[in-house]
């Protein structure tokens, strides 16, 4: 079990040091399809990308596409932060990027389909607004891919 209150004081101070005003105005998109008909994409801020893709820089608001059929061994991580555990992800890609779990949901008929492309950002060292441009671009790509909804994972 790890809660913020369980962490050392300097760790807590780092994670809560900045005041983050609410993103405004509030937004809400109601899914049109029920889950069993939805086309879903995965998006992570874990700094994942294909082996051979440009690495993420120290602070970087860009993103990398990950084709749905990518083999787990072809995905690596170049996240700048050293303050999270990577050993679990080494053991199991699904701990951070649960693509096998969503393939199982697809096989069980729980979701409609998976996107042709998933996406990865690197969530470190930037204000929330730094992701506005990249997110807008990815939203356009997702619509082109007929995606209804996104499942988001941090790291």
């Amino acid at each position: 079990m790890v809660r913020l209150s369980d962490l050392p004081h300097d760790e807590q101070a780092h994670l809560t040091g900045k005041a983050l005003p609410p993103l405004r105005p509030p937004v809400w998109t109601t899914p049109i399809e029920p889950l069993k008909n939805m086309r879903l994409a995965l998006i992570t801020t874990a700094g994942l990308h294909l082996r051979g893709d440009p690495l993420f820089e120290f602070a970087d608001g860009t993103y990398r596409p990950i084709p749905n059929n990518t083999a787990p061994g072809d995905i690596i991580m170049s996240h700048s932060s050293v303050n999270f555990d990577r050993t679990g992800f080494s053991e199991d890609i699904n701990l951070v990027f649960p693509v096998d779990r969503f393939r199982e949901l697809l096989d069980q008929g729980m979701v409609g389909s998976l996107a042709d492309f998933h996406y990865s950002f690197m969530g470190a060292g930037l204000e929330p607004q730094a992701f506005e441009k990249g997110a807008a671009q990815v939203a356009g790509l997702l619509k082109q891919d007929q995606v209804d909804a996104v499942f988001l994972t941090p790291v």
Partner: peptide
């Protein structure tokens, strides 16, 4: 930002 662009999200 994705939701603002009309893509529903959970995570």
């Amino acid at each position: 930002y994705l939701e603002r662009a009309g893509i529903a999200t959970t995570g």
